[in-house]
């Protein structure tokens, strides 16, 4: 097999993995702090993609221009959702939280179905097919942009968690809720901020996916299934784990597609997933219990 072909598959896999990583980032953040698997993650991604699509259809707003306003809006949306819907409805019981997010995903999905029907939509135009020539490789321009934005987003998230008081409060509540309360930190606020950050990640991911992908009311689920795999692969709750895991899964999928044929590309993901579970159940970056 020609070397250029493999190099191109590697590059394309890494680029595709960046979008996975963003979706997984939101999921792992919420899991790490609230200790719940957010079943509404996929449905919220669908909402974000419809929002990005709607901004384009109604105002001609370019998805890349929409990243910042949509991320801010989704942060607020996520904050409100956790603070005034999910939090109060679960009465402090993790089992309830799980069911509430599952219920939310059903409500959201059906609301989208009622509003937009089950039609599949795209941005139209041919911007999604732009390529950039780098050496011998032809790389998709939207994916290249997506890769850069995903890395910047992950770096911003890391800086927020590591360097700001809000970030420290998030990490404090994740491990030691009572201790945090006695420092005057309000866990309800921290949970809502965390959920908001998770939603903001989804908004960024949606804007990056839209130029090369389609949108329909169930589109989020396809990504979230892979994102779950990434979260477990990287270590539940680990930010670097989600980033590295996402890139890795994109890489495996792309190489698998090249070597085994496009339809079997995802086979490799789950093979490696099972191997990780067997050999290192805490994930690549996960802390031992």
């Amino acid at each position: 097999m020609p070397l250029e072909l493999i190099a191109e598959a590697v590059a394309n896999g890494l680029l595709a993995g960046a979008a996975y990583a963003l979706v997984a980032l939101g999921l792992t953040l919420v899991y790490g702090v609230l200790h719940i698997v957010n079943f509404a993650h996929g449905a919220l991604l669908s909402v974000a993609m419809f929002a990005a699509w709607g901004l384009h259809a109604a105002f001609g707003l370019d998805p890349y221009t929409a990243i910042l306003p949509l991320a801010v809006a989704f942060f607020g949306f996520g904050y409100a959702l956790q603070r005034w819907v999910i939090g109060p409805a679960s009465h402090g019981d993790d089992g309830n939280t799980l069911l509430v997010t599952l219920g939310l995903s059903i409500v959201i999905e059906n609301a989208l179905l009622a509003l937009f029907r089950s039609d599949t939509r795209t941005l139209g135009g041919d911007a999604g097919f732009d390529v950039v020539e780098i050496g011998p490789m032809l790389l998709s321009r939207p994916r290249l942009i997506g890769f850069g934005v995903a890395l910047v987003t992950a770096a911003l998230l890391w800086a927020l968690l590591a360097l700001t008081d809000t970030g420290r409060a998030i990490r404090a509540v994740a491990k030691e809720k009572l201790g945090a309360q006695l420092c005057g930190i309000d866990p309800r606020h921290v949970y809502a901020v965390t959920f908001g950050l998770g939603c903001a990640c989804l908004a960024v991911a949606a804007c990056l996916l839209l130029p090369t992908f389609y949108v329909n009311p169930r589109v989020g689920n396809a990504f979230v299934l892979v994102a779950f795999t990434i979260v477990v692969l990287g270590g539940m709750g680990s930010i670097p784990g989600a980033l590295v895991g996402g890139l890795f899964v994109g890489l495996v999928e792309s190489l698998g597609g090249l070597l085994l044929g496009e339809s079997l590309g995802q086979l490799g993901i789950f093979l490696i997933f099972i191997l990780v579970l067997l050999l290192r159940p805490t994930g690549l970056f996960g802390a031992r219990a």
Binding site: D165, K175, A180, C183, I185
Partner: peptide, 21 residues
Amino acid sequence: GRRIFPNMSVRENLELGSYRR
């Protein structure tokens, strides 16, 4: 039982002591 934040540095623990006040 102290309830310190085990996953954070000593300095960060102290800094969080002044989160509210």
